[in-house]
Structure formats: C-alpha cells, structure tokens
Design a protein around this nucleic acid. Structure first.
Length: 157
DNA sequence: GCCAACGTTGGC
DNA sequence: GCCAACGTTGGC
C-alpha cells in the first residue's frame, strides 16, 4: 500500500463536503496538472490511503484520512463545457485527465497544521514543505505517514 | 492583497 | 528548441 496527500481548497471542496457525500465517497476530479495527473493515473491504487489537506486558508492543515476506493478512470468534468474544469482538448476517446474515487476514513480530532508539520524535524524532506511546492497530489513515504499520524495522536503541547 | 515559485503558451 | 510573457497556486 502507498500513501499520498490530496490538496483541496475548502471553499471549493472541504472535508465536510466529503463527509456529507453519498457513501462519504467522491470522485477526486479537476486535477489539471500533468505531474499530479500521473500520480492519479499511475500511482494511486485501491486501498491506498491519503491525507486530506486544506489549502489556501489561514491555517492550512491536514484534516482527515481517506482511502482510494476506485483506481484511475477518465475525469468526466473535462468533457463538460459547463464545468470549471472543462478542457476541450480532452475527450472520452482520448482522455487527458483522470480521477480516482476516495472515501473518508476518519476526520482528525485535531487538524495537523502546516506550522505543526514544519516544526517536525523528521519531515524536513516532505514534499509539501518544499518551497514553491504547488502539486495537488503528492506521495508520502511510509515513514512520513507514520510520523504525521504520531503528530495527530500527540497530546497538545 | 502581495509575491515567490512554477507550469504553460506562443512567437521566433 | 529557446525563452519571455502570462496565468495559477498557495503561503503569508
């Protein structure tokens, strides 16, 4: 099993939205970056787990855990002229963009803030913390995953 | 709102 | 294939 981190701006899709979705499951659609697309298409497999990360807010943070319940399939939002994710260069015959389905595993009792992640020396190499990082789907090593879960379980300092 | 970082586009 | 211009992301 592999581990990932999925970013979302809560203004457009939040953990609450996922919790309210049928089956607490959603298609992770709208990714329009090739590197992130490649992770979605080739990396994420059924059973993989991911952190759900809220970006572009006052306190960016990991807020939940999700599980991949369906591996890559064409992102239909790219075919919909009414969608903000519409891409006329993608077609059902030759899809350019892919999505996966994810299901909520659990909401963290206490979000792990970006500031908290930065305070952890073991996460110095974590891609999320790299300067200028903008990838919305990124890989998390098993060691990083465990370290972050420890942060989530640690008593308040 | 600002700005650094990065990806994409398009002229040449 | 280079590279400047532009758009987007995302923390602050």
């Amino acid at each position: 099993m592999n581990y990932w981190l999925l970013k979302s701006e809560p203004h457009s899709f939040s953990l609450d939205d996922l919790a309210a979705a049928p089956g607490q499951t959603t298609a992770w659609e709208g990714v329009r970056n090739y590197q992130a697309r490649n992770f979605l298409r080739d990396g994420l497999r059924i059973g993989d787990q991911a952190f759900f990360y809220h970006s572009s807010i006052a306190q960016p943070a990991i807020v939940g855990l999700v599980e991949v319940t369906r591996a890559a399939y064409p992102d239909a939002s790219a075919f919909d002229p009414g969608s903000p994710y519409y891409d006329p260069a993608s077609s059902p015959q030759a899809p350019r963009w892919y999505c996966v389905d994810v299901r909520l595993i659990e909401r963290l009792r206490r979000p792990i803030t970006l500031a908290g992640l930065k305070r952890c020396p073991a996460l110095a190499d974590f891609a999320l913390l790299r300067r200028g990082n903008r990838l919305s789907v990124l890989a998390v090593s098993a060691a990083q995953w465990a370290c972050i879960l420890d942060l989530a379980a640690a008593p308040l300092a």
